[in-house]
Design a protein around this nucleic acid. Structure first.
Lengths: 345, 345
DNA sequence: CGGGTCAGATGAATCGTTTCATTCAGCGGT
DNA sequence: ACCGCTGAATGAAACGATTCATCTGACCCG
């Protein structure tokens, strides 16, 4: 049995098995080239010493590592954990580990993680940028680290991305509310510097315009963050408007906001959906599990992650034939109780 | 500017700056030993070539890496994402990256991640074991990788752990329900092979016994998983019991179960807390944001993560004086609407 | 002017693994 | 008995950064 201070290397294994280090390496990597007896002897030595390969040394020689980086805005958002699972499934099937990094929407944190990942020589990086596509990211790619954008469409054709048509999603949500006779609608979102928020708002405006309504039929409420607390606050502010300006429906840029809104409305005795309808975005699991099941725009979260990881692996393993692709999924509106006035007075 | 195929190394930098590789390394690691002019020349060369250190090479030489592994049961559970943030805060302050691994409560996945982490020669591992403490984990420690148990108390004194007194938590929850006059209580949990579930159940039983009630005052409902779907199912099963056996309160082993229970009760027209009270566990953010705000046993999630990471770093940097510690936090009962019958008929 | 000091720079050795050109032994064919 | 072949094993080189013993030259002092 190996002792605590062992630090066993191929050399030790080779010595114990009475072979050369090259042979040990062959047993590990191309066992068919080694005679059965030798192979057994080496295997025995490996388990006796408790030998564990040193990935850094392999990697140093090989030039490429077995990890990919996944950089997201917020791991606490169920949307991203689901995407992460998709990434992990694909990556681990390919024998790759995932380093999950959390930026909290801060460019500074994003940059320091990118440095770290590049120093680790990760095979590639999946990222939902906190802001504009930074120079840091461009440099990274130029130096040879593949980057796939996640939940954000690449602007050019020279880069892979996997996203969902957020404009269409915003359009779907608001069109649904308009179809349900709502004429005063609020959009509740986070900072528009986040591309997803900006696009969903844009889609909402398109729907309003198509219906021939004036611009002010849509009240735009921009909050600090995309979380539950901001959702509650947004409702407080909306309910404080002059009575005839209070919307009859709100479309929230994500489900965390929508859940906060739902809670605050209930708290204030406003009935959902009878007095006010709500549509969220992402269709996280908690949306259908909410007390008033939440209508929401569904995104194929898991598939976004899987596809992005596939593109990344394809680009990383590129033998020359890689074509950059911009995959765009279609959002789907899931109508639940929070926006259907079946028993309307 | 660096070209795509650059793969710049210290050698290239040294050549461009007209110095030796040793000097480049000194500029990087002990700039005070290098004369200002040389330092500037080297720095210029570094940025001109876009040189990025190769962490694997550093690590190979240094013998220790700059990453730690965090192995949890389920990243999609907000409890763990909050713990993960705590870990990340401490780790990144120490210049360490976190590799987050998800076992889905499966021993097989756990083992394959442990292999991977050991091959990466991580500085240490934080883990919530899916089952018993496996031999794999013991071997790992014997070979020199520090391991700190997370949300699970170490059985011996030879290992660090950070946990919460789950027995006490179960006791608190059930005692609270007993104080509210409930005499038929259900415990809804996941498999008891998960230590947390077993301990919370044990605490619940202690409370029942202390109150002098018979064992069958507690209906034990063991479900497959610790998620929302299982919570709904559990309620369906409980409501199918003979009327006089149906409990008036349920204590759920975590908040995901409790949220599922809440939803199903509402769906079946059972009023919470008037017809049935609920207490959850973890006090995740969604608990207070639920339509009927959920009573729950709070754990210092963020602090669990921080403390565990601190212990791990201390053990990893050990210069001989490390004492293994088993930190146990106290749980706190947060009473909200789901278990208070103020307007009881 | 010789000797000592010291900051600064050097470059070979090292970490653990993989790779590949080379060696070796055994064997069949002539 | 010798040649050529093949399967098996070998061992040195290489990956890139760090370290440390060593070297260089400038400067000061007696």
């Amino acid at each position: 049995m190996a002792l605590k201070d062992a630090a066993v290397s191929v050399k030790d294994v080779a010595a114990l098995a009475g072979v050369s280090v090259g042979t040990v390496s062959n047993v590990l990597n191309r066992p068919e080239r080694v005679s059965p007896e030798t192979r057994d002897r080496v295997s025995a030595a490996i388990s006796e010493l408790g030998f564990v390969r040193n990935e850094s040394a392999r990697h140093l020689r090989a030039g490429s590592s077995r990890t990919v980086g996944l950089v997201v805005l917020d791991v606490a958002n169920p949307f991203f954990t689901d995407v992460a699972r998709g990434v992990e499934d694909t990556a681990s099937a390919a024998g790759l580990a995932v380093i999950l990094c959390n930026t909290d929407e801060k460019t500074a944190k994003e940059n320091s993680y990118l440095d770290l990942l590049e120093e680790q020589r990760v095979r590639g990086i999946l990222i939902t940028p906190a802001d504009e596509i930074s120079d840091r990211l461009t440099d990274l790619r130029r130096r040879g680290t593949p980057v796939v954008l996640l939940d954000r469409k690449a602007t050019g054709r020279d880069q892979c991305s996997v996203s969902v048509d957020d404009r269409k999603g915003g359009d779907l949500a608001v069109t649904h509310l308009l179809d349900s006779r709502h004429r005063r609608i609020a959009f509740v979102g986070g900072p528009t510097s986040i591309a997803q928020v900006a696009d969903r708002l844009r889609g909402a405006k398109v729907a309003i315009k198509r219906a021939g309504l004036p611009d002010d039929a849509l009240t735009v409420q921009i909050m600090e963050g995309l979380n539950v607390a901001s959702g509650r606050l947004a409702i407080q502010q909306l309910l404080a408007l002059p009575k005839r300006k209070i919307p009859t429906a709100v479309f929230c840029a994500n489900d965390l906001l929508a859940l906060g809104a739902l809670q605050e409305l209930s708290h204030q005795g406003v009935r959902v959906p009878y007095d006010m309808a709500i549509v969220g975005y992402d269709d996280i699991d908690f949306a259908s599990a909410a007390m008033v099941p939440l209508s929401s725009v569904r995104q194929p979260r898991h598939q976004i992650g899987r596809t992005a990881a596939e593109l990344l692996i394809e680009e990383a393993d590129d033998t020359g034939g890689h074509k950059h692709r911009q995959v765009v999924f279609e959002p789907e509106l899931i109508v639940r109780e929070s926006s259907t006035r079946t028993r309307r007075a």
